[in-house]
Computed example of a mutant assay.
Amino acid sequence: MLTLLLLTMSVWIYMYIRRLSFLFTKGIDAQELQSPQQLQQVIPESVNRPAYNLANLFELPIVFYVLCLLAIFTNNIDASLQYLAWCFVVARIIHSIIHCSYNTVIHRFIPYFVASLCLWSMLIITVLAYL
């Protein structure tokens, strides 16, 4: 969980580095960015990629955090859950690197899909442990 949280923080920092350097370089007044629509009109997609990835890190990873906390609080941590959790995190790191950089969709989709399979497998294992 901590590794995924560190990834989220890193993407957040990178997002601000990209955005602020763009704004300072282009001499854009922050007041021109009052709404998300204005922000998207002023800042190009390539600069906004980390912001899109940051938003993505608050979607499926929320399920990951809940499953991890559930496993910890119920003391239901086995090798398969640990393996799947690490696979999920590594795949999300790869996904973020691709998403924040060159952003080829099929390249980004593969680690996203692998991470999703790991996550849903973690959920199934957790549900089966309670049956």
Rank of each mutant, 00 (worst) to 15 (best):
C118R: 00
P61I: 01
V90P: 03
T8G: 01
N75R: 10
Y52A: 14
R49F: 03
E45Q: 08
K26V: 02
L6I: 03
F24E: 13
D78N: 15
V66N: 06
N48D: 13
M9D: 05
A85K: 00
F109Q: 14
R18W: 09
Q37C: 02
R49M: 06
I62D: 04
V105N: 08
L131F: 15
L54G: 04
S116V: 01
M15V: 03
L5F: 05
Q82K: 11
L70A: 10
L4K: 03
L23M: 08
R19W: 10
F109D: 15
Y65A: 07
F24L: 13
L128N: 15
V66C: 12
M9V: 12
L60F: 00
W86R: 05
L54K: 02
L33T: 08
F113R: 00
W120L: 15
D29C: 06
Y52W: 11
F109M: 15
A91F: 01
I94A: 05
M122L: 08
L69R: 06
Y102L: 12
L60E: 01
A79R: 15
L23R: 09
P36Q: 08
S10W: 12
S96E: 12
M122D: 02
W12H: 10
L20N: 12
V11R: 08
V89D: 02
P61W: 00
I72P: 04
Y16P: 01
S35Y: 11
L84N: 09
L81S: 05
V42R: 11
Y16E: 07
A71L: 14
G27M: 07
V63T: 15
A51L: 13
I98F: 08
Y102D: 07
V42T: 11
V42C: 10
C100G: 10
T8W: 00
V114T: 04
F58W: 14
S116N: 03
V66R: 05
L84I: 14
M122V: 02
D29V: 10
L57T: 03
L39F: 11
H95M: 00
I94C: 11
Q82C: 07
P50E: 06
Q31D: 11
A71H: 13
A129I: 00
F113M: 00
S96W: 11
G27F: 05
I125E: 09
I124G: 05
M15K: 12
A30I: 10
Q37W: 04
E59R: 04
Y14I: 09
S80M: 12
L81N: 10
L119K: 01
L67N: 06
V105P: 05
Q41M: 10
N53P: 03
V127T: 14
N76A: 13
V63P: 09
N75E: 13
L23Y: 08
S35M: 07
A85D: 02
I98M: 12
L39G: 05
L5S: 06
F109G: 13
I98G: 03
L20C: 09
Q31K: 15
Y83N: 06
L5P: 01
A129M: 04
F22Y: 14
Q37N: 07
D78F: 08
E59F: 01
L6K: 00
A129P: 00
